[in-house]
Design a protein around this nucleic acid. Structure first.
Lengths: 203, 203
DNA sequence: TTAGTTATTGAACAACTGTTCAATAACTAA
DNA sequence: TTAGTTATTGAACAGTTGTTCAATAACTAA
């Protein structure tokens, strides 16, 4: 039935509108200070409308996180599958992450700024895409260890988090300095990989 | 005048009581969910009493942060000044940090969990001890570069933040696994330094 | 057109919490 | 003891914000 399809499509449109507005407002004010009113206003709907699409504020936040992470993961996976060498894979992993983040700075601000909050950490673990991302990173590092690119002395899971932390930190610093310098974020992927693999010591 | 001294001492006692309670409640619930009522109750005072010692909630949070960071910094500085070699200094820096964190897990939870929040980041910058800590770390890395321990290819400030991020991440992971394993946090200082200086690559 | 169905609205509700302040208690010094 | 001073209390206030729901608008199908 065509009518049903259009209805469904309209519904998706509203949902997308709200998600887009939420992304903007969350990024602007952070999770706590962002209000449903503001999000609704930004999306040009009434407050109540938001609740027709999302159970509550948390669900809205989750849905956003979920969507963004899912996209990033699928992009990354696709590109990585095209190469065999683990070092190449790591390079692609970092590069694609940076490209995606640079394109989605709004979302990115939430992820970085509230990502390390413990409650948000627990949220991330509840988020299936978040878990998938974490697992994928760990697997990537296990493969790197198997191929002899990363030392087997380290616990893959721990190393995966350190890898992520280095990346986040470099991004954060870039964000803070963004006004002054006009460096592309993606240009920092070499730095990140070098730091992670070879460390900061003089050679 | 003895009376004045005792009064002043009593005042300090109240202040300390409140700070101690605040540390506990903040750590338990995080900054936002911690209420002044809860803190007052924990310290066995009335709500209003808190305001006789701290201008508002923010000031209370600051005072706590300030006190803890100041102590950590002074301990670290003292120990570090006893050696000359930059690599030794870095080792001591990490080790003392871990020891202090292990002894102050309550405080630590706040610092780690809300430390990366942007608003809290701005708070940290306002906090003079936070700024001092940041500067001290950067200086330490500059010295390490001067002594040829750390590569001069990197920006000292950026490297300082990466260094801190690695440390935080390892601590966070340790905190999460704390129930299962019974590993001392301080035993991970070698791992942190190795990762930071030599990276994760196979050698 | 029209009766019924669905979607949207936004004012009202309720819960929470930072902050104040009048009342009370504790303390001080004469 | 007592008048004056200071410290403490916790109920009341005010602002905020997540959420609901009765009223209204839009839409659908006959």
């Amino acid at each position: 039935m065509a009518a049903l399809n259009r209805k469904e499509r309209d519904r998706q449109l509203r949902r997308t509108d709200i998600l887009k507005a939420a992304e903007h407002i969350f990024a602007l004010r952070g999770y706590h200070k962002a209000t449903i009113r503001d999000i609704a206003k930004e999306a040009q709907y009434a407050t109540g409308t938001v609740y027709l699409h999302f159970k509550d504020k948390d669900a809205l936040y989750f849905a956003l996180l979920e969507e963004k992470l899912k996209t990033l993961l699928s992009i990354t996976k696709e590109k990585i599958e095209q190469v065999k060498d683990a070092r190449n894979k790591l390079e692609i992993y970092v590069r694609e992450g940076l490209v995606y983040f640079e394109k989605n700075q709004d979302f990115f601000r939430i992820f970085i700024s509230e990502g390390n909050e413990l409650s948000a950490e627990q949220r991330l673990l509840k988020s299936s895409a978040g878990l998938q991302m974490q697992r994928y990173t760990t697997d990537l590092l296990k493969e790197s260890q198997a191929q002899g690119v990363v030392s087997k002395d380290f616990d893959a899971e721990r190393i995966a988090e350190v890898f992520t932390a280095i990346t986040k930190t470099v991004i954060l610093k870039w964000l803070q300095a963004k006004d002054r310098k006009s460096e592309n974020l993606v240009d920092l992927s070499g730095l990140i990989l070098k730091l992670f693999l070879d460390g900061a010591a003089s050679k």
